[in-house]
Simulated scan of single mutants.
Amino acid sequence: VAAEIEAGPAHAASSMGIVCALLVDRFEAGAAPIAMVSTDNFSQNGRRFQEAILTIARGWLEHGHVTQDFVDYVSDESRVSFPWSMIDRITPNPSPETEAALREQGWEDLDLIKTSGPTFAGFANTEAAHYLVIEDSFPNGRPALEEGGVIMCDRETAERADTMKVTACLNPLHTCLAVYGCLLGYTRIWQEMENPDLVALIRRLGYDEDLPVVVDPKVIDPKTFIDELLAERLPNKSLPDAPQRIAADTSQKVPIRYGHTLNAYLEAGRDVSGLVAIPLAIAGWLRYLLAVDDKGEAFEPSPDPLLADLRAQLAGISLGETDPAKIHEAVSPILSNAEIFSLDLYEAGLGEKIEGMFAELNAGPGAVAATVGKYVR
């Protein structure tokens, strides 16, 4: 980014630099208003998009590549808006199952292209269910997007819809299935939905523990959203999503998917001691970090920026270790880390409970399945 700022818009190389350069062209051609709509799948995407563009624009100003008038143009939301949105459609990596099904229908040139990151192909896996909520901030007018099923609303509603999804009604359930799927040897999410104990666990997580504190965005009913997720989306065998994909970057997800809900309980003065699914999901993640499955066999954890540090913290714990003192010494620096969970789980009253659940999950081969069954049956 620093090199790009120094070089200026004519040599923009990053995606944000290219977008900013296009805005320079628009400004110089008459500065017509425009809405820069982000459908990136993360919270407050419009704000982050705007901040990225303004960072580049101000850097170009400092180096004399643009004028203050251009920066003022991009900064004025009545001229250049950055609507917030919530997008939801599960789209995993292209899978061999879909490749085979399409070949049977006569399609060609579908070879999977594997890289060190995502897998690419001439097709995409996705699902029928989809949601797109967009803040209605279009300074130059817009097409009738609502006629295509887009939910148009104000910024607060768009943010509430996103918060509903990522903190309560989808993402927490997905992450719970991801870590337990890896531990129990599953390679597809739909396979996990045939395990009644895992289904009971995420039902308790969604309906009993998340819904009581979620803020209803009104444009999507939270309970109906979970109903569809459990009945149609997660069991969909035509959507070959993998728990290993969802388990990536879990350390970056837990403050949003679990910390947010716990903070909502605490801010409302509600007792969290009776929660089961949320602490069991967190304990399952700790057990996952040992990289040993429920059969006692090693597996490769999904990429995570904190993986090496977290595994080093748990290095003294092997499968079968249940000593409370040793477990506390190993996991307490993680569970008390507000940078990971957005709160200290001991101060919240759940640290010791999670330690106990982790000990049960770690008792030996078969303990993961047995522990989940114990808590949900």
Rank of each mutant, 00 (worst) to 15 (best):
V292N: 01
L110K: 10
L177D: 03
E355H: 12
I56K: 11
P92Y: 11
C169D: 07
A7F: 06
A121K: 06
S273C: 06
D241T: 12
Y73I: 10
K114P: 00
L110W: 05
Q313I: 02
S15E: 14
P222S: 05
F341V: 14
S75N: 12
G316N: 13
A348N: 09
E339K: 15
K326W: 08
L184V: 11
T322F: 04
V199S: 00
L177V: 10
E127Y: 09
L343F: 10
L262G: 08
L201W: 06
K223M: 10
K374H: 14
G296R: 10
Y375W: 15
Y346Q: 12
A338I: 02
E339Q: 15
L198P: 03
A2C: 11
K237W: 07
E192D: 05
L132P: 00
W107V: 11
P305M: 06
M193L: 15
G349N: 07
S302F: 11
I278D: 09
A13Y: 07
S14R: 05
N41C: 09
A158R: 01
D69F: 07
L266S: 04
V372K: 01
Q313F: 00
S116Y: 08
V254Q: 05
E104D: 15
P118K: 14
V24Q: 05
V331A: 12
I226E: 03
R287T: 05
E329K: 11
P324G: 01
I90N: 10
E77Q: 14
D136Y: 08
V272Y: 09
T261V: 13
G269A: 01
N125S: 05
E329G: 11
R270T: 11
V215C: 04
R257N: 01
R188G: 03
L286E: 01
G148A: 13
P83D: 13
D76V: 11
A178Q: 07
F225K: 11
E99S: 07
M16D: 01
E146Q: 14
V166G: 00
G64H: 05
P255T: 13
I226M: 10
L184P: 00
T250P: 00
I151Q: 12
T157W: 00
I189Y: 00
I56V: 14
D323G: 04
G148R: 13
L54H: 09
I334P: 12
P243W: 08
R270Q: 15
L22T: 04
S137K: 14
G364E: 05
V71H: 11
I134Q: 03
M357F: 13
D323A: 12
E108S: 15
A101T: 05
A121L: 04
P33M: 12
V254D: 03
G148P: 01
P83K: 13
Q44L: 14
F358M: 12
N337M: 08
D221I: 04
C169H: 04
A29V: 00
H63L: 08
P217E: 01
L307F: 02
A168M: 04
R79T: 13
A144C: 05
S75V: 09
G269Y: 02
L170S: 09
S85C: 06
A168G: 13
L234G: 06
L112T: 02
P118C: 10
L310E: 09
G349S: 06
S251Y: 10
A298W: 09
V215T: 15
A298H: 13
T119Q: 08
L345E: 07
G206K: 04
K218F: 08
L280K: 00
L54K: 07
A200F: 07
